[in-house]
Design a binder for these strands. Structure first.
Lengths: 246, 246
DNA sequence: GCGTTTAAATTGTCAGACATTTAAATGTAA
DNA sequence: TTACATTTAAATGTCTGACAATTTAAACGC
């Protein structure tokens, strides 16, 4: 962890990058203490505020954590699942909202990923995850439910489906895809009729998983995807021409 | 963007969080200019260094970018695909390397996700992506190839497979899974025999995609997964008992 | 031997200053 | 008038020095 040539980029960015590389390469290991801010400032020949800005960059990526007091300092942080989930969801949500991703493309990606979990979920679903899915299906049938609550319940249902695969890496990867879709899903207005249809698909999925029938679950998911797509397209079309049709 | 109660957390973290929420909620839109550091310091009633630390946190997540000079400042950044890829790969790699994820679990997740792309890839593969896959297969057959180059070529092959699906959201999601596996894959020593087998699987996949046969491609992927798993388990077992067997 | 106090180390925050960069405004000459 | 050079202003980047808050360990007293 040495070098800062006569680069013209921000010093704090260079220092953060140098430390990140040490961590990524495993030369700084989990829970290891970094030198104090004063020592880092001396080492890199910069001032303490510059070092602090670099450390804050690393902290924002959950690469380090800091503690005050004697024997405090900056420590290499073990990236936990919740932290990784949060980072992934933030990034995915922004990517979708800022880049004019079409509803079709996002929808296709989401359901393709969910179908990937289905064989594992059908093999490993537990009474617990099934119960979660059944409870959300029941909630989705309640007439007084707001659109926001319906969407939130939809997310919970699909997360239970993903978690049924019992693979934390898969759950982590899928979390971004499912959660990031929510703002797009919220744009769809759910009528009573469309809610009824969605509840029907969810029921078919839960039934198929309960019977360990992966193919049936995938088929239901594919039909749900097609249905969601038509709902999305109708909304988009209605927005494109506000009040034109005779 | 208002409040910082008598919270005891770092002021710079609170300020960064407040601004991030504004961006996530869409109240600060892409390319919009934030107030200057001096104005933010005045608004939040903190000093400029504290504001700067908050802004560096946001910059580390690619939420803002800064420009010097007159009419410079901090601007809400449009999260690009390359930036999102980088964030995702960093997070995924650290999650896997720091949490004692078993080879089996990581492998299962990776191939499940790749199989999710296969139907789309079989339908949409182009001469271009097929050519990339063929070229990498050829490279993988060269006898003088180092293990590192073989692994890099393996990543390129699988990325071409994913990109064949022609869905940028899917490519983004998969990038983390494929790239993050590389350090684990690098731990496996490839003998000439195992390389030959892998090249065989890759050829079957490319052939199947060329003929638009999704099922055959998925079958080959599944067999490749099983084979990779046995390779990984052998390596793990050999490490567990260094020199015991009679 | 145990509880209390003190000291030391470290991060968090502040104030003020100067350096550097950038684009607009201004001035000047062809 | 137009083109080019200069000045100016605004903003970020960096530094210095200081003080506050926090936490642990050691010193101290009983």
């Amino acid at each position: 962890m040495k070098i800062d040539p006569d680069n013209k980029a921000d010093l704090s960015a260079q220092i953060a990058e140098a430390i990140r590389e040490e961590i990524m390469a495993g030369r700084l290991i989990v829970d290891e203490r970094l030198p104090s801010e004063a020592e880092l400032a001396d080492h890199f020949e910069v001032s303490r505020p510059t070092v602090r800005e670099a450390l804050k960059r690393l902290a924002a990526q959950s690469l380090i954590r800091t503690a005050r007091g004697a024997f405090g300092g900056a420590f290499v942080n073990r990236l936990s699942y919740p932290e990784a989930y949060g980072q992934h969801i933030t990034t995915s949500t922004l990517l979708l909202s800022m880049n004019a991703i079409s509803f079709d493309v996002a929808c296709e990606a989401r359901y393709a990923l969910e179908r990937a979990c289905t064989p594992l979920a059908a093999a490993r679903r537990t009474p617990d995850t099934l119960a979660t899915m059944r409870a959300e299906i029941h909630r989705q049938g309640q007439p007084g439910l707001t659109d926001e609550s319906f969407c939130a319940s939809d997310v919970t249902f699909h997360r239970a489906l993903v978690d049924s695969a019992d693979n934390p890496v898969l759950s982590y990867q899928l979390a971004g895809a499912v959660e990031a879709m929510q703002p797009l899903m919220n744009m769809i207005t759910f009528t009573a009729r469309s809610r009824e249809a969605i509840v029907g698909f969810h029921t078919r999925i839960a039934d198929a998983l309960e019977r360990h029938e992966a193919d049936a679950a995938q088929a239901a998911l594919s039909e749900l995807e097609a249905y969601t797509l038509t709902l999305g397209r109708d909304v988009m079309a209605a927005r494109a021409r506000p009040r034109q049709p005779a």
